[in-house]
Measured scan of single mutants.
Amino acid sequence: NQASVVANQLIPIQTALTLVMMRSEVVTPVGIPAEDIPRLVSMQVNRAVPLGTTLMPDMVKGYA
């Protein structure tokens, strides 16, 4: 099973992502693949992302 990127904390809207905000976890449905974590650093979320939420491509500006 492929690991996805999951929020390690509440990430407020417009926040630039850092490594400490994300973790990898095998979840359903599958979100952004964990191997993309380095690419996500400094990208902004376009909505508030609660703790434990799987990051989906449409939540990160410039990802999809």
Rank of each mutant, 00 (worst) to 15 (best):
M56W: 05
V27G: 02
V30Y: 12
V41C: 06
L19E: 10
V60F: 06
V26R: 09
V6S: 00
S42A: 11
G52N: 11
Q2R: 14
M21T: 02
M21W: 03
V60A: 00
R23E: 04
I11N: 01
I13L: 12
A64I: 13
L40K: 00
A7Y: 02
M21N: 07
V6H: 01
T28F: 15
T53E: 09
V6L: 08
S4E: 01
L19D: 07
R47P: 03
R23M: 06
A64L: 14
S24N: 06
V27I: 06
Q2Y: 10
I32N: 01
V27F: 03
L10V: 10
T28D: 13
I13T: 13
V20M: 14
P12Q: 09
Q9R: 13
G62I: 04
M21Y: 05
N46E: 10
P50C: 06
D36N: 11
P57C: 06
Y63M: 05
D58S: 15
V6D: 01
M22S: 01
Q44G: 03
P33S: 09
T18A: 10
L17Q: 00
P50M: 14
K61R: 15
P57S: 08
M43L: 15
E35R: 11
A16T: 12
L10I: 11
L55Y: 02
I37P: 01
Y63W: 14
T28V: 11
A48D: 15
T18W: 04
A3Y: 11
R47I: 11
V26A: 09
M43V: 04
N8W: 04
P38C: 08
R47V: 15
M22D: 02
V27P: 00
R39S: 14
G62H: 09
D58W: 14
A16E: 11
T53S: 10
N46C: 05
R39F: 11
S42P: 01
I37H: 00
V27S: 05
V20N: 12
L10F: 15
M56N: 05
E25V: 10
E25P: 01
Q14C: 08
P57L: 04
K61T: 15
Q14V: 06
L40W: 03
Q2E: 09
V27Y: 02
P50D: 15
P33G: 05
A16Y: 12
D58E: 13
T54E: 01
V6M: 04
L51Y: 11
V6W: 03
E25C: 08
A16G: 08
V30K: 11
P12F: 05
A7G: 01
L10A: 14
P57E: 07
E25F: 06
P50W: 05
G62D: 14
I32K: 01
Q9M: 15
V45H: 02
